[in-house]
Design a protein around this nucleic acid. Sequence first.
DNA 1: GGCGTAGAAGAAACCGATTTCCCCGCCTAC
DNA 2: GTAGGCGGGGAAATCGGTTTCTTCTACGCC
Lengths: 344, 344
Amino acid sequence: MARMSTRPPQRVTIAHVAEEAGVSRATVSRVMNGLATVDAEIGKRVREAAAKLNYSPSTVARSLAIGRTQTVAIVVPDLANPMFQETLRGLNRAAAREGYRVLVADSIENPEEEVILAREARRRCDALVLVSPRMEPEVLAELLPELSPVVLVNRESPAPGVPSLAVDYGSGIRSVVKELERLGHRRIAYLAGPDGSHGNQARMAALQPPVPSAPQPEFVFIPCGAMFEDGYRAREAVLGSGATAAVCFNDLVALGLLGALHEEGVAVPGRLSVTGFDDIPFARFASPALTTVSVPQTQLGEQAWARLWDLLNGRDPEHDLTVTPRLEVRASSGPPAAEAANAP
Amino acid sequence: MARMSTRPPQRVTIAHVAEEAGVSRATVSRVMNGLATVDAEIGKRVREAAAKLNYSPSTVARSLAIGRTQTVAIVVPDLANPMFQETLRGLNRAAAREGYRVLVADSIENPEEEVILAREARRRCDALVLVSPRMEPEVLAELLPELSPVVLVNRESPAPGVPSLAVDYGSGIRSVVKELERLGHRRIAYLAGPDGSHGNQARMAALQPPVPSAPQPEFVFIPCGAMFEDGYRAREAVLGSGATAAVCFNDLVALGLLGALHEEGVAVPGRLSVTGFDDIPFARFASPALTTVSVPQTQLGEQAWARLWDLLNGRDPEHDLTVTPRLEVRASSGPPAAEAANAP
DNA sequence: GGCGTAGAAGAAACCGATTTCCCCGCCTAC
DNA sequence: GTAGGCGGGGAAATCGGTTTCTTCTACGCC
């Protein structure tokens, strides 16, 4: 008896609105979807009834009926990484323009998890964006068909029909090295990323001299990682290597190293040049501002959406894209110190 | 006639599996959901049929039938801000443990958009997390009932029954000021955040002396903003203010300012102490490491999930939480220069 | 005036699952 | 020997929309 007049006891459905307006459910549906063939008077009545009951159609039921969820998913290896956050942001922004929403799945750097997540996320959505999975190529190739429509980011497509947006890591790393070479560096440390990482393998490969005899700086490879902490901890190894410049796997590592060097009072770039990769938003504002290679990750997210949108509409997506990152010379790189770097 | 044996022409439904296994759809459903009361032999047959057809149940249909989507949404004002990224990450991680997925909606700092987004996002999901909207309190109060179940983050709840996770910005800003006071600073600049921001208002209020006559450092208020660029551009205003310390609205502003100061060769903290707010991951690794106030944003995301989970299960959520942020003294703050700061 | 047709709205099928309800067969107890 | 109980599985209702198909009305044209 004490039922409040506010908030109907349970969800308002299309049937309630139909009854209130004295029409059929079909008509309510037509009105809600703006189908033209409805009498103005009836349309008004339906809209009033809907407003009165505070009706809002169930997206789930609608999705089931029309066979689309208007949602896409993105699977990333680590939501804590600014790179993937940028991709997510770009995708989200672009998808929102078309009325689509984005579901996030974070594998937390767990490759097996990644496969399950991708499958599961795909089933909930109309399409999928897979960002640089640590996944083995064979596993990936087998998985992709059942994920379609899907777009691959930060990785080249191993399967036809799956658009991909890759980054030319090799070219990026070479542009950094070339700049350091130009500045006079002859012994360069490379702070390597995670072993399994596709991006790291590409960078390493680019550091091998194309012609063994070609004059080229000497490289010291230091196993490191992909996070701040990894770079921070690498200080001693870098300083002990005798290198005059440190090329870091990514900006996070570079910034971690920068912090450690600053604490120790090591001058950058006076004593050691430091370079990053990715050009995350912080890179410009580091002290000193970080020389790095700019990967337009937000745009990759937007491009991923464009491909997905094509696939969703049955169009052939634009051709695969390989982004060539641009060198951003800032204050953290400079000529090597005049003194020999190997002095203790 | 050339139909490939791979990939059935259209989606495999429960009916196909039922037919293949020679049982009813009800039985297939029972098997798929692990209901105990199914003969072992039949269970095996169903599973084999499902595997053979590569069946995976439609989440949409399932959601409609059981009335839950196993998805929650989060609405944030700006996905580019590390704070909200952390909240998203915490929420995502916690929700994943319970088999829930997270949908992201980014209002891109647009308050009207925020209302629409929140409504729309909520309809697609079982529940909603609303992060520190710029929304007017009245608008919010009116909106909240129809969003339920919903949890508010970074803001106090204006409605009973809506759990909230707030941050005691006042206490945070006072702890910074107290530390600077202890170090001997007498003239402090406050680089203010966006006007409409709830967080900024709380910080400003905390800077008003509780007793007008109480001895307290002098404050210079400098309108600034919430982003890197804002801090970067504020350099001249800060240097011209005669303050020996700059208390920044957040870490982004502080890091922007730090970058600008570094370029100009201004010693930090020698010539000027700089403090931030939030303790974003980068703060520790800035050069110099940023003195700031630590807001455990990832935990807020996890706590938000805990509240949501309670609501979803019809339990009373744990009481509202007001996090008192912790001062993190690092290298960017120190005693003021001996010389008068006002000298040109 | 009659017939053909277009336009508007309702009835019912459908999307793909879950779940209630009921029936059937077998086992046990009286 | 029969009744009652129980467990397993199928038929059908249900979730809340969309859409096709059908019906009815009214209009225009010959």
